[in-house]
Write a protein that binds this DNA or RNA. Structure first.
Lengths: 130, 130
DNA sequence: TTCACCTGCAACCAATCAGTTGCAGGTGAC
DNA sequence: GTCACCTGCAACTGATTGGTTGCAGGTGAA
């Protein structure tokens, strides 16, 4: 599973593209906080067809923000937020030396207490770099 | 100038959407590093029509990442990266307590001197997590 | 074995998007 | 005033996107 990113689009295209849709962001954060879910379950409490949700999840997977594993007859999707580092890297890199505000904001994250940082769920191996 | 964001899309939709296109990202960083430019000039060294560039710049402006000012018969576009704080805010907020890697990356930036936060950036309402 | 349930694939539709071209209207310089 | 140059608007096209529905196929449980 987990479609390979299309050769004509870059990692950042896929990432920003995936995050540009509110439904997709919602699915991503839902997976991030509630752990693995099937598309069927995710579609249940949303006014969306299962197929629509599947397509969104595949878009997330194509960008590396989600991954799927088969468990019996179900397919569970998991958020894989590591890839967001590419977004952060772009922010840092492209901004170079602009005004300080963003660094202050980022500083807050850097200063986060470690107690809160533990991975919310097991981050299984399918994630590998391409 | 600077179209208002459409009422049906949120700030984040517009931001991520604007950044999802490689041409738009290139234009943005170009403006960021080289300073104000006209669409005509920007289109010159790109294999793109002026109108196409104008549309991209308008998309950037709609998301708040660029602004334009009229100077005589020219219109100069300027990058306004402050709005990127909304992206950072989303990263911070939605991620909450994920994996360490990103914090290391962010930590590098956050380690800068004089990091104290004022108001996290005035967000015109609609930004929250959805 | 049978049946219920979940997934995957395909076709299709409407809307949006990226891009083009053509033309009209301002503005500055000579 | 004239002319060159830049911008703005509109129409149009092709591709992509977000969404739907229908149906076939695999899997687990009774």
């Amino acid at each position: 599973m987990n479609r390979a990113p299309s050769p004509t689009s870059t990692v950042l295209d896929d990432l920003f593209g995936a995050l540009a849709d509110p439904t997709r962001r919602a699915l991503f954060t839902r997976l991030l906080h509630d752990g693995p879910q099937t598309a069927t379950v995710l579609a249940a409490d949303r006014a969306l067809s299962r197929q629509a949700v599947v397509k969104h999840l595949q878009a997330l997977a194509a960008s590396g923000l989600a991954s799927s594993e088969r468990v019996g007859r179900e397919v569970r999707y998991v958020a894989t937020p590591e890839r967001l580092t590419a977004v952060v890297a772009w922010l840092v890199e492209s901004s170079g030396q602009w005004d300080r505000r963003i660094e202050r904001l980022l500083g807050r994250v850097g200063a986060m207490p470690e107690a809160q940082i533990d991975a919310p769920h097991q981050q299984r191996g399918t994630v590998g770099p391409e």
